[in-house]
Amino acid sequence: MIDLHSHILPGLDDGSPSLAESLEMARLAVADGTTHMACTPHIVPGMYENGSANIARAVQGLEQALRRAAIPLALYVGADVHIAPDLPEQLAIGSVPTLNRSRYFLFEPPHHVLPPRLEDLALRLINAGFIPILTHPERLSWIKTNYDVVERLNAIGCLVQLTADSIVGAFGRTALYYSEKLI
């Protein structure tokens, strides 16, 4: 199994706070059948100032620790990228990473407010040759009143990534409902 969205890199965002926790996360992932994992810390301007260079260094460091601990998990560079007006340019110059240097990247809008011109930004990204993967839309609080935006984003070429815990109801009824609707 391939995990395309993880916050396993220690100390880069609100995910793993330590190498010990990252190793435990890796052990659990492998026990659940994960063989490959994209390391996708948040990139949020003004909050999580991550980029391709520091994420790649963190992935290399964790890979070394996994080898020392004999944990068979292949890691890849990526990011959970918060929307920004200059995102197409940042992806094009490589300062914001895509998933394993592909055209695909995790595209995260704000959780509580539908940003203006989100569809325009998505079209700019697609026209620039990238494929946005909208992260966990079932958990966005604005999906209740703007489900049509998620449908339109998908129709223009954005892929959709659901969180497994949403599908089994761990994030509540609303996330479960929209997970089922999106599936």
Rank of each mutant, 00 (worst) to 15 (best):
M1K: 08
D3C: 10
H5N: 03
H5E: 02
H7N: 13
I8L: 10
P10C: 11
P10N: 14
G11Y: 12
D14H: 09
G15H: 05
G15A: 07
S16W: 07
P17N: 06
P17W: 05
S18F: 09
L23F: 08
L23M: 11
E24S: 15
M25F: 14
A26E: 07
A26H: 09
R27K: 14
A29W: 02
A29E: 09
V30M: 05
A31D: 08
A31W: 04
D32L: 06
D32M: 08
D32P: 03
G33N: 10
G33S: 11
T34S: 03
T35E: 10
H36Y: 09
M37N: 04
C39E: 06
C39Y: 01
T40M: 00
T40Y: 03
P41F: 08
Y48G: 07
E49P: 02
N50P: 00
N50K: 02
G51C: 11
S52T: 15
A56L: 05
R57L: 15
V59Y: 04
Q60L: 13
A65C: 06
R67A: 13
R68F: 08
A70V: 06
I71R: 02
V77M: 03
A79P: 01
A79K: 00
D80W: 01
A84G: 11
P85F: 05
D86T: 14
L87E: 03
E89H: 15
L91V: 03
L91W: 00
I93P: 00
G94L: 12
S95C: 14
V96N: 01
P97Y: 04
L99V: 07
L99R: 01
N100Q: 14
N100V: 09
R101A: 13
Y104N: 02
F105A: 00
P109H: 05
H111F: 15
H111W: 13
H112R: 06
L114K: 10
L114H: 06
R117D: 15
R117S: 14
L118H: 07
E119C: 06
E119W: 00
E119T: 14
E119G: 03
D120I: 15
D120R: 15
L121Q: 01
A122I: 11
L125F: 06
L125R: 03
N127V: 05
N127H: 13
A128Q: 01
A128W: 02
G129Q: 09
G129I: 10
F130N: 00
F130V: 02
I131M: 03
I131H: 06
P132G: 12
P132F: 13
L134D: 01
L134P: 00
P137L: 07
P137A: 10
E138W: 03
I143K: 02
K144R: 15
N146R: 12
D148Y: 05
D148C: 08
V149A: 03
V149E: 03
V149Y: 03
V150R: 00
E151N: 04
A155H: 08
A155S: 13
G157A: 14
L159C: 11
V160D: 01
Q161H: 07
Q161R: 05
Q161I: 07
G172C: 08
G172A: 09
T174D: 14
T174I: 14
L176S: 10
Y177F: 15
S179C: 10
S179R: 03
E180R: 12
L182Q: 05
